[in-house]
């Protein structure tokens, strides 16, 4: 079933929408959740919460690309779950590794009063990402949005793992410079 038809089922309040979504996207969403939670049971819970969130949000939402929409829900739910639960249990997750990588540009001691809202920082990130070459942008989003492993990122970006590491390192440094120039206090 194509995505438009699935979204239509949600709008018709037809409960088979969830079954169909599960059949088509469960593996895809589990991958996103596992990258963050590094735990099958928690990931299953996160993906189940995603189906519930999809049911509750459509309507009014009518996503044009269902996979991205669902992936975004899973990502949010999984990050939220990660924060609520014992982080020590998941030291090996790609999310934990991703956090440690951005520590070099985002320190903990910033003045909370001066912190920009996530949406504002998101706007800056958008502008920054648009300025990058495609392989830089794709690897950055792969690593820090999807939390994919370096090996996976390198694979689908058509580069070696070593090159992916270098590209990500340079991109993080560029981001640091960019945010500083834009007046974002690090």
């Amino acid at each position: 079933m194509n995505d438009d038809a699935i979204v239509a089922l949600y709008w018709q309040r037809d409960e088979s929408a969830i079954t169909v979504t599960q059949e088509k996207y469960n593996a895809y969403l589990m991958k996103i959740a596992r990258n963050i939670l590094n735990d099958t049971e928690d990931s299953e819970e996160s993906v189940n919460d995603t189906y519930l969130a999809a049911w509750e949000s459509m309507p009014p939402q009518k996503p044009t690309v269902l996979s991205t929409y669902l992936g975004k829900l899973t990502r949010r739910i999984s990050i939220s779950m990660f924060r609520k639960r014992n982080a020590a249990k998941r030291q090996g997750s790609e999310f934990a590794l991703s956090i440690s990588e951005v520590e070099e540009i985002m320190t903990d001691h910033a003045n909370p009063e001066k912190e920009l809202e996530a949406s504002h920082l998101g706007e800056l990130l958008n502008a920054f990402l648009c300025s990058l070459k495609p392989d830089e942008r794709n690897s950055f989003i792969g690593r820090y949005y999807y939390m994919d492993s370096l090996k996976d990122v390198a694979g689908y970006c058509g580069m070696t793992e070593g090159k992916a590491k270098t590209v990500l390192f340079r991109t993080r440094q560029k981001l640091k410079e960019y945010l500083t120039k834009e007046g974002y206090e690090l």
Partner: peptide, 14 residues
């Protein structure tokens, strides 16, 4: 701030 960064990544263009 690291968490803010990952929240902000949620706002990048679809």
């Amino acid at each position: 701030k690291q968490e803010l960064f990952f929240n902000a990544m949620d706002y990048i263009d679809d």
